[in-house]
């Protein structure tokens, strides 16, 4: 069960993954976000730094998150938090994913495909 998800499957949902980790409230920096994603997914989603940071910068450019520098934790870090627009996008995307998952489940049920566990 600890297999990682397929990259292609993940690609479309990375924004959602990062936004939802930030929705937990408070500010978080990149390393922490990476760690929380890993923990929350039981190790099945591992965001490489080379994916995570460009992604964070894009979300910031889009106004979904905002950042600030702070050295309060003993190291100068860039902290990210959700904006109102980000919160809105998150709930819209969450809805979309729930619908999508339900749709796939139904498709599989019609086709009588059993997951090979």
């Amino acid at each position: 069960m600890t297999n990682k998800f397929e990259r292609d499957l993940l690609r479309g949902s990375l924004d959602l993954v990062v936004l939802s980790v930030l929705a937990g409230g408070g500010k978080k920096y990149g390393y922490l976000i990476q760690k929380e994603v890993r923990e929350a997914s039981g190790g099945r989603v591992d965001l490489a730094a080379g994916t995570l940071y460009p992604l964070l910068h894009r979300l910031e450019d889009d106004g979904l998150i905002r950042s600030s520098w702070d050295a309060g934790t003993g190291r100068e870090r860039k902290w990210y938090e959700l904006t109102a627009a980000g919160r809105k996008r998150l709930s819209a995307q969450a809805q979309e994913w729930a619908d999508y998952a339900a749709c796939i489940r139904q498709l599989l049920a019609i086709a009588k495909v059993q997951p090979a566990s």
Binding site: G30, Y31, A49, R75, E76, K78
Partner: peptide, 14 residues
């Protein structure tokens, strides 16, 4: 500089 600074803090944390 901002990008290098951000990545540096990540490397040091790791």
């Amino acid at each position: 500089d901002a990008i290098a600074g951000e990545l540096r803090s990540h490397l040091e944390d790791r």
